[in-house]
Simulated assay, not measured.
Amino acid sequence: MKMDASVPFVAATLPLNKGCLNYDIFIDDLIDASSKLEVYREKIRDSKLDSSWFMPTLQQKEALASSMMEGTQATLDGVLINQVTPNEKDKNLIEVANYFEATEMGYRYLSRNQFTLDFIKEIHKTLMKGNVRKTIGEIGEFRTKQNYIGKMDEDHAITFTPPIFGEVPQLMENLLDYIVDPKDSLRPLVRAAIIHAQFLTIHPFMDGNGRVGRILIPLYLYCCQQIDLPCFFISEALEKDKFRYYKLLNDIRTDGRWSEWIQFFLKNVTSQCDKYIKMITRINQLYDQDLSRACEVIHSGNIVDIINLLYKYPVVSSSIISKCTDLPSATINRYLNSLVECGILYTDGKPRKRTYFYYDLISIIRD
């Protein structure tokens, strides 16, 4: 019988019953995704540029992609420029900056601790701070009212009603138990797909559930030691197929089609790995090329630090470099001018407080 979308859903607890999964549907995709994730992991390990330099830039792109799925209006260039000159009035940019901060906070926390419900609440609080949305209910707290998911059109027809709010604490405790101590024999990538879907089904917050759910993916894979850093982001792939993404999540609830959802998730893991592998290859090539060019015009070991910083800040200013190094302002400006003259950087041309753009890297990130 067809589920009434206006009636609160009765969510099953985890782990899933064995009969819920048909391995024949997704086993080949699991093999492909696991293999590609390991290649991506090795690619980062072997990179000539330490991953701590380019991970923040990938996080910025993920923050944008995940926020765009919720209707945020921003561009990659705008997000990168906002690192140099923060716009405290543009809520779109604040929302993306919050996502980046939440990802960073999650990484620092999980380097020392394991998942807790308070930690998940803290992610939500960080995401929603600054009044970025007209949120009903407290940020960083599980909902105490009923919420709904509706179509993004004029009639806003209800497509799914999450469980009643009184069931949220128990369902989240069950989800946390599954994250920390799962009682099944599934692979971490399959569990990541299940955790993401279950979190969105519970919909524990009044708003921001999609973004919290997508942040949990790399953080969970990091905790399971599937990746060395939480720098595998899937929102970009999901955003391209977001209506299929929403449909397959709903199919789990209406028809119990977990295997089809897991297959879709794994295919997106493979697709995103392919993209990141090519991106890191191009970044390594650019790094070698431009470090060599920079050393030809600037005969100082300090130029290595400047070039490295460009991968963390593809849009940069002398003040940012000053905060990150011990170099005097006059030296920084001389280096930046030399990088402009040799065509590595481009500038907005302002007489003071110039902004510099590393367009060759930005182009790689945009693709």
Score class of each variant (00 low, 15 high):
M172T: 09
I306Y: 02
T159Y: 13
W53T: 04
V10F: 15
D24V: 08
P314E: 04
F243G: 06
E95Q: 11
S259C: 09
L189Q: 03
D50F: 00
E341F: 00
K18L: 15
G256M: 11
L336A: 06
I364M: 03
I25W: 01
G137A: 10
Y359N: 13
L266N: 05
P204A: 04
C231Q: 04
F243L: 13
T159G: 14
D90M: 02
E88Q: 06
D274V: 05
Q226K: 13
I120G: 02
L361F: 05
Y245E: 02
R45V: 05
D155S: 15
I158F: 04
A63E: 03
I227M: 05
F165A: 12
V304D: 09
D24K: 07
L266W: 03
Q272H: 10
I195T: 06
Y222F: 14
S363H: 02
D290M: 03
I252S: 09
I158T: 14
T161S: 15
D181E: 14
R293M: 12
S111M: 09
R293L: 13
R214P: 12
W258Q: 13
I320V: 09
C324D: 15
S338P: 00
I280D: 10
E38S: 14
V132C: 03
F119W: 05
L64F: 01
D305F: 01
V39S: 13
D360N: 12
V212Q: 04
I365S: 04
I332Q: 07
V10M: 15
M206Y: 10
E260G: 12
Y107G: 09
P182T: 10
F54H: 01
T161C: 13
H124K: 03
N268G: 02
K242H: 15
A33K: 04
D228K: 07
R191Y: 03
E260V: 12
I362H: 00
Q73K: 14
A193E: 02
N284E: 04
K183T: 11
N174R: 07
D207H: 06
G213C: 05
F160W: 12
L64G: 01
S292M: 06
I280A: 06
I139W: 00
S67V: 02
I215T: 12
I215M: 12
I120C: 04
G150A: 15
K350M: 10
L249Q: 08
S6E: 15
L200R: 08
M3L: 15
V212L: 05
K240Q: 14
E70V: 06
K350C: 04
V7H: 13
L64R: 11
K134L: 04
R366A: 15
